[in-house]
């Protein structure tokens, strides 16, 4: 697959206990829909990220099923509660079985 896949995540460095924070994620991926054809008319096979999850200290925040109708370089923005100090784990699942992950620590303050 997909070369040069690079996840990027934006999480605030600090938050108050119980505060709701906005998390923005972006991963560079071509998200080939399986609908397009190449110059000789052959269908380019589907190759997308089909699932994204975000967990905080093992507790789930969001679990998204992505379909071919999601744009290239899938971008997701959502809200999470910060119950304590810890680490957000982000995981993207590719059609070809690859798994990309990223982690961000957050402090209380």
């Amino acid at each position: 697959m997909a070369s040069g896949v690079k996840p990027r995540v934006k999480v605030p460095k600090k938050a108050a206990v119980g505060e709701a924070i906005t998390i923005k994620t972006l991963i560079s991926h071509k998200m080939e829909s399986g609908q397009r054809k190449d110059k000789s008319g052959n269908i380019i096979p589907r190759s997308i990220i089909n699932r994204f999850t975000c967990d905080f200290n093992g507790e789930n925040v969001i679990d998204v099923t992505l379909e071919p109708a999601i744009s290239t370089n899938p971008y997701l923005e959502f809200q999470a509660t910060v119950p304590s100090e810890g680490e957000f784990k982000f995981t993207w699942y590719d059609d070809d079985g690859s798994v990309y992950d990223a982690a961000k620590k957050i402090a209380i303050g």
């Binding site: 709701a20 969001i62 679990d63 809200q79």
Partner: peptide, 11 residues
């Protein structure tokens, strides 16, 4: 297009 499932910590 997509299905979003919200977990316990979704604010």
């Amino acid at each position: 297009v997509a299905t979003f499932k919200f977990g316990k910590l979704a604010a």
